[in-house]
Every structure is written in structure tokens, then in C-alpha cells.
């Protein structure tokens, strides 16, 4: 069985659970809990969101969404092996937690492990173009610091088309 993994990481509310839901052909396996702090939504993921895309009888792509907060870093270990791709989601509208992003990039080290990495900005449908571009710039500065050459694109995790365009890009980068 040729089984590859796509790990999806990012801060609370970035859209990890949503994108797994959008892409997965199976009903995704989620581990949500009611949030005790105001995060803009009722529930938050405290474990792994799991979904799957079957490509053929013996080929499948597993989708693994893991929380980005450092205290859940023990979950990062579960997904940091033989990755087909690493997707980092960043929510537009709030200043990203760069300390945390720094830790995620240091842990996954996509440039060392030669893992294809894409950074996607979410919640930017109604955003001001210039400040979205500025956010992209902030992110690229962080990526450069880690010697990671990765595209920074805008996506809507609710949209199948938008989510699929990510897979197209991952596939092109992995070829």
C-alpha cells in the first residue's frame, strides 16, 4: 500500500479542521473540545483531525491536522515521518504567533528533511490586498530565516476548488 501523509499545522482557528473536512472523502475523524477561552468559535481541536483521499486500490493520501500550539507539540511527532507535504495555515486578521511558527519550523525542518512545504493564508477573502501582501511578507521573512523556500498563497479552506488547488501545487512541487 502506497500511503502518503499530508500534515496540516497552524494556530487556533486557522482552518485545519475545515480543510480536512473539505478534502477528505471519508467523514473526518476529529478530536474537538469546547473552548474555554474566546477563540472566535465554539470548539477547538485538541488531538488529530484525520481524513483520507483514496487514489486507487493501493494508494491513498492521509490528511492529518494537528494543533499548532507548542503544548501540543507531542502530536507533531506523530505526523513528522515520511511526509508527502507540510501545509502551514496562517489566519489573516491577527498578528501570527511568530514564536510558535518559529518552533513549528524548527521542529519540522522542512528544508533539512526535504519535505515540500506550502504556507497558506486563510480568512483573507474580504481582506485588504495590501495588508494581505504585507502578511505574506512577514511570513516570507520567517521562512527565509529557516532557509525554507515555500510558496505563500491565499486559500479558502471551505472551498473544494481552493483546497484542491493546494494539492495541485503540492503535487507539482513533489514531482
Amino acid at each position: 500500500m502506497n500511503y502518503q501523509k499530508l500534515a496540516i499545522i497552524g494556530e487556533v482557528g486557522a482552518g485545519k479542521t475545515q480543510i480536512v473536512r473539505t478534502l477528505s472523502e471519508i467523514s473526518p475523524f476529529g478530536t474537538e473540545a469546547k473552548s474555554t477561552i474566546d477563540i472566535g468559535k465554539k470548539n477547538t481541536t485538541v488531538g488529530i483531525d484525520y481524513g483520507r483521499i483514496t487514489l486507487s486500490d493501493d494508494m491513498a493520501l492521509g490528511l492529518y491536522g494537528v494543533p499548532g500550539q507548542e503544548r501540543y507539540s507531542f502530536l507533531w511527532e506523530f505526523v513528522n515521518q515520511s511526509l508527502w507535504g507540510l501545509l502551514i495555515l496562517i489566519k489573516y486578521g491577527e498578528t501570527p504567533d511568530y514564536e510558535n511558527l518559529d518552533k513549528m519550523l524548527a521542529f519540522f525542518s522542512p528544508e533539512k528533511s526535504q519535505t515540500t512545504c506550502i504556507v497558506a493564508i486563510t480568512h483573507c477573502e474580504d481582506g485588504d490586498k495590501l495588508s494581505i501582501a504585507a502578511l505574506g511578507q512577514e511570513i516570507r521573512a520567517m521562512l527565509m530565516h529557516h532557509n525554507v523556500v515555500a510558496p505563500v498563497i491565499n486559500i479558502d479552506p471551505r472551498s473544494k476548488e481552493s483546497a484542491k488547488s493546494l494539492l495541485v501545487l503540492f503535487n507539482a512541487l513533489n514531482n
Binding site: 478530536t31 473540545a33 485538541v46 488531538g47 488529530i48 500550539q69 503544548r71 501540543y72 507531542f74 502530536l75
Partner: peptide, 11 residues
């Protein structure tokens, strides 16, 4: 530990 506990409970 709190993170681990919440994950295992939710899982």
C-alpha cells in the same frame, strides 16, 4: 500534561 490529557480524552 494538560494537553496530553485533553488529547487522550477527546481521542
Amino acid at each position: 500534561l494538560a494537553a496530553i490529557s485533553s488529547t487522550i480524552s477527546a481521542l
